[in-house]
């Protein structure tokens, strides 16, 4: 069938054969899809400047589907959306630059791609006050207090100790 569509599009089918094939394409959804895709491919090859594919939106949509390793809580939803948008934009730009650069100096391109992971920062929630005992116990052994003195304890006492356990 695909072969037939291809031959038809090249104008190499006889009129009666073309009639039969067009009828099949009309009835067969898959063949209809192939027909549309082949025409799209043809159009892109012939006139690439007229084809506008929103690559950014595609990348962004795919990134939203990516599993985030750390489950975010509701508080940071807006931040997450912004992070995703920024990461997507950065990825598109970086991919563009890297693809272009790989033509020039191939070895340098790889680290650029690898760095993209870091821009996808997970959104985290605040440490619950009930875990303050762990922080306090940790502080007893942290070298921070050796060097900086008691200000290191601010991490433990900050903000939430006043909340009831």
């Amino acid at each position: 069938m695909k072969q037939g569509i291809s031959v038809l599009m090249d104008g190499e089918l006889h009129e009666d054969e073309a009639e039969v094939l067009l009828g099949e394409i009309r009835r067969d959804g898959d063949a209809h899809g192939d027909w549309a895709v082949y025409h799209l491919i043809g159009d892109v090859l012939r006139q690439p400047e007229h084809i506008h594919r929103d690559l950014g939106a595609g990348v962004q949509a795919r990134m939203k589907d990516e599993p985030t390793v750390l489950a975010p809580r509701s508080r940071a939803v807006t931040q997450k959306v912004r992070t995703v948008a920024l990461s997507a934009a950065a990825s598109v730009v970086a991919v563009g630059v890297v693809a272009w650069m790989s033509l020039q100096i191939a070895p340098e391109a790889a680290p650029q791609l690898a760095m993209q992971d870091a821009s996808m920062r997970p959104v985290k929630m605040a440490i619950h006050p009930k875990s303050n005992d762990y922080l306090m116990a940790h502080q007893e052994f942290s070298p921070a207090a050796d060097m900086t003195g008691g200000t290191a304890y601010i991490r433990t006492v900050a903000y939430s100790l006043n909340e009831k356990p």
Partner: peptide, 12 residues
Amino acid sequence: IEGLSTRGAINL
């Protein structure tokens, strides 16, 4: 169970 949480430079 808390999973991952944070307060400044301290993570849990």
